[in-house]
Every structure is written in C-alpha cells, then in structure tokens.
Simulated assay, not measured.
Amino acid sequence: MSDLYFGTDLFGELDRLQRQMSGLFGSFPSSLRSSRLGTFPQINIGTTDSAIEIVAFAPGIDPSKLDVSIDKGLLSISGERSAQQPLPEGARQYAQERFSGAFRRVIELPQQADPDNVQARYVDGCLLISVGKREASKPRAITVQ
C-alpha cells in the first residue's frame, strides 16, 4: 500500500485540466499554429478556397525593412521598427507601450500551402500575405454520370 494520499480524485483533476486546455486552444485551427498572444506583430489568419490569407498588423514600419520568407512549411515575418520619440523635448517618460526594435514571427502553414505562390504587400500599416493552395487541395466539382 502506498503512503501517498491525494485529498482529491487525481483522474478527475486531470480531466478538468484537459477540458480547460481544450477550451483555451480548441478555437484555433490546429494546422495553423503561431506564437502566443501579445507578440509583435499581431496577426490574423484566414483561408479561402484558393489561398491562406495572413494579415500582420505592423504600423510605423518601413516596408523595405520587412522580410517575408517560407522554408519547410514555416512562414517567417521579420523586420525592425525604429524607436521614435513622440514626447516633447524635456518631458520625462514613465511608460512606454509601443514596441521598438527587431522582431520575428514564425507561422506554421498547413500542408496544402504552395510556397511557390506567395504574394505580399504593405497597405495602411498592415502586411497582407496571400499563400496560394496547391491545385490538388482546392475544392472541385465532380460530375456524376
């Protein structure tokens, strides 16, 4: 007989923990994994019949300082946001919420992503990336004879 005693039902606690974890991560598509919340730039990911659409919110960044690449199913967004001093001269800063410096976001793409069919453009502070889907994965109608 074991000398260890758990004052509660151990399996019940594990089941509760699993339900909580499912609630946290159940709303995200499992094939499109990205970093935790609070990282820069923030992103939205969606899909259409023909492409995977990614919007990275990156205001105040020179588009020439952004780098987008795909390698082994991972989309990488990197760049640098320069530090700006928006306060008047002589003012002392006691809080700063705007991020400045180098950054990198890596997003795992689903298998149907076509790395040879990628378009990126920067519009109104948003980096818009469209990754086409492979022809074999696109929905198609089949005629019944």
Results as ranks from 00 to 15, higher is better:
V131A: 10
G101E: 01
S82H: 07
R105K: 12
D124Q: 10
P110R: 07
A58C: 11
L109K: 06
P86T: 06
Q96W: 08
D116C: 07
N117S: 13
Q93R: 14
P63M: 06
G90Q: 06
R121E: 09
P88D: 13
D71M: 12
I70Y: 03
S78T: 08
K72M: 13
P88K: 15
D67S: 13
K72H: 15
A102R: 15
L128V: 12
V131T: 09
I61D: 02
G73Y: 07
R121V: 04
D116R: 11
R104P: 00
S82G: 08
D116V: 00
Q96G: 09
G101F: 01
E89S: 05
E89R: 11
Q84W: 04
R92S: 14
A113M: 10
A95Q: 11
Q93G: 02
R98S: 15
E89V: 07
S69I: 13
A83M: 11
L128T: 01
S100I: 04
Q85C: 01
K72Y: 13
P88C: 08
I107W: 09
Q84T: 06
A56I: 10
G90Y: 02
A95T: 08
P86A: 05
Q93W: 04
G101Y: 01
A120T: 07
E53S: 11
D67W: 04
G125C: 04
V118M: 10
R121H: 11
G60H: 01
G125E: 09
V55N: 14
F99Q: 03
G73L: 04
Q93F: 03
D124T: 01
L128E: 13
A91R: 05
G60L: 03
Y94F: 14
R104Y: 00
Q84I: 05
I70E: 01
Q112M: 14
S64H: 08
E53P: 00
L109V: 13
G73E: 14
I129W: 00
Q96H: 06
R98V: 14
Y122I: 01
C126V: 12
L109T: 04
Q93S: 05
F103V: 00
E80Q: 08
A113F: 00
Q119A: 14
D71Y: 08
Q84M: 08
P88R: 15
V131K: 11
G60I: 02
P86W: 11
I77P: 00
Q93C: 02
S100Y: 14
A56R: 10
E89D: 06
I77C: 01
S82M: 10
V118R: 04
G90D: 08
E89F: 07
D71Q: 14
G60S: 05
P110C: 12
A102D: 07
G73K: 08
P86M: 12
G90W: 03
V55Q: 15
A113Q: 12
E97R: 11
L66E: 01
G73N: 09
I129A: 01
I107M: 09
R92P: 12
S76D: 11
P86G: 04
V131D: 02
G90N: 06
R121A: 10
P63K: 02
S76Q: 14
A95S: 11
K65D: 13
I70M: 06
Q84A: 06
Q111Y: 09
S82L: 13
E89A: 10
R81W: 01
G73F: 03
P115V: 15
G79E: 02
G125V: 02
E97S: 12
G60N: 02
E89G: 00
P59V: 03
V123H: 03
D116Y: 09
I54Q: 05
